[in-house]
């Protein structure tokens, strides 16, 4: 693996499968009475969150702590965009404190990339979601969840439905799932698909009902109601009617098909409560898997070739 995890595109198929296998090993920890490994003892992981995201932060925090790393949470709400301390100065501060890995969530696309490549810090950088760009550990935990339910993803059909334009989850998933051999279909109204999506190598559709019967996985994306104020769709009700997953649409799915959501859900908007709480829904399991996958990522980035799995850490981005 590379030294940083900035984009799902940084992962080769071998890298991604190594993460999944490592996560599988680490996940079994969750069933033991003592949920802790000494693998990262003495290492420091900084959670640098410029955006509020309690769920992602505590997932990374739990992951680092279960590997015995020291964790520093740095909530720098309000980036240099809003008169706070600049990203660079924050990074220099953390570097001075001896961080081994920086897990960064930032509202600006590319901020983790800047952190990793501007010579500000020497530590490994993990992108925990940047603007409307990527969220690679989310894609890994999603793939891990699919893999546990469906086995190998080659040829599996994954429908990702909703606000693709503003979704870092969709971008990372589209990249990673293709790396793992799945066939991805992005479903959204035309206003919520980015320009140039024809070059992503994925299928696109404006018609959810046509896609559902063939899907092995349906992943619903969060859709903010405020988008209707910018005319991306007329009303929340119309959005739900055309692109929401309700009980009626759920009955179109194959028996083995699972329903996913990266959270936080807007119940009644993109997904109804009966679907979210149904047997097909693996939404809660995604959260559990998130900790295991993030443990695997931190472990592989920080401890390299030694240990449980044997990895080859090569520095591809000097």
């Amino acid at each position: 693996m590379k030294r940083h995890l900035l984009s799902a595109a940084d992962l080769t198929r071998d890298d991604a499968e190594l993460v999944l296998r490592t996560a599988e090993e680490l996940r079994s920890l969750a069933d033991r009475p003592i949920k802790k490994l000494p693998a990262l003892r003495g290492r420091t992981v900084v959670n640098l969150f410029f955006e509020d995201s309690t769920r992602t932060r505590i997932s990374f925090e739990a992951a680092a702590k279960r590997l015995s790393a020291d964790v520093i949470n740095f909530s720098a709400k309000g980036s240099s965009l809003s008169k706070g301390e600049s990203l660079k100065d924050t990074a220099l501060t953390l570097e001075a404190m001896g961080a081994d890995a920086v897990v960064v969530r930032h509202g600006a696309s590319g901020a983790p990339h800047r952190l990793a490549h501007s010579g500000w810090v020497r530590s490994s950088v993990v992108n925990a979601g940047d603007g409307t760009h990527e969220h690679p550990t989310q894609a890994l935990l999603d793939a891990f969840t699919m893999w546990r339910h469906l086995g190998a993803l080659d040829g599996r059909r994954v429908a990702i439905v909703g606000d693709v334009l503003h979704s870092r989850v969709a971008r990372s998933n589209a990249l990673l799932l293709q790396t793992l051999g799945a066939e991805v279909t992005l479903v959204a109204p035309p206003t919520l698909l980015p320009v140039g999506i024809d070059t992503w190598g994925v299928e696109t559709s404006y018609d959810l009902d046509a896609v559902l019967p063939k899907a092995d996985v349906v992943m619903m994306l969060r859709v903010q109601r405020e988008r209707m104020n910018a005319s991306f769709f007329p009303t929340a009700r119309e959005y739900s009617r055309r692109y929401g997953l309700d009980g009626k649409r759920m009955r179109m799915l194959q028996d083995h098909t699972i329903v996913m959501h990266p959270g936080p859900m807007v119940r009644g908007m993109e997904i109804t409560a009966d679907v979210a709480d149904s047997d097909r829904s693996v939404i809660v399991e995604q959260v559990t898997n998130g900790v295991a996958v993030r443990m695997a990522v931190l472990y592989l980035l920080l401890s390299g070739a030694e240990g449980v799995t044997g990895t080859d850490e090569s520095e591809n981005d000097a």
Binding site: S109, G110, D130, G131, H133, P194, V195, G196, T199, W200
Partner: peptide
């Protein structure tokens, strides 16, 4: 808007 709207802006998540 941050950069030319095209294939790359969509991929980089920068407003076109």
């Amino acid at each position: 808007a941050q950069m030319n709207e095209g294939e790359l802006s969509g991929r980089l998540g920068l407003t076109g």
